[in-house]
Amino acid sequence: MRYVSPIVIAEITCLITAILLVWKDRNVFWKVITCYIAIALGTELYAIYLASKHIHNLWLFNIFLIFESSTILYGLYCCLKQYTTPKPIFLIGSGVVYLTYFIFLFTHPFTDPNTLTISVMSVFFTLYCLYYYYLLLKDENFINIKTHPEFWWVTGVLFYYFGSTMSNIFDGLFSVKIIGVATLRYCIYVLLNLILYSLWVYSFICRMKQRKLHS
């Protein structure tokens, strides 16, 4: 039962949906996202296992951070590529994120949570998402956003990274328990993960429908 948490359930659901609906997609983007969800789930389960053995697990999340930032950067790059040439802004963004990561790595113990990189990453991801919306609105062609997979994928990213801004900034400064042993921070992350994975599941459904329509 220890392994069953709302985040794990959300990740398993999202992974199963991704494997069933978009794994066979010709577009590499969807395969990368499926692999990322599998890695996220693996990380989450291993972190729970380490915690159960009373072993420090923050180093695991620090390694996962590399996969997380790379995948989301790649995903946003693919989405923005449809409207503009995003290479320069992504070179800057990824440069800053990785530089922050390695500076933090060399100046802090590896077992410290890399909140600085998470905050910097969140800012860049939020900006890219807003830029995506801007380009979407500016584009002359009309798209049906209700069934547009990339739109909902980006929306999930925006909710998660924009919503986690305050928790990242005040990380470590508050540890109020609200439901039994669950801290407020944990509850916020559960909520954000549920929103993220729900929107991603919806985007997979949209993608599957879109593919069926085009085949």
Partner: peptide
Amino acid sequence: TTKIALLVAVSTLVFLLMPVFLI
């Protein structure tokens, strides 16, 4: 700590509402 927690909770709610209005 409670004050900070409350601030974080309220701001997170606001931060989540903003994308809703944006959409």
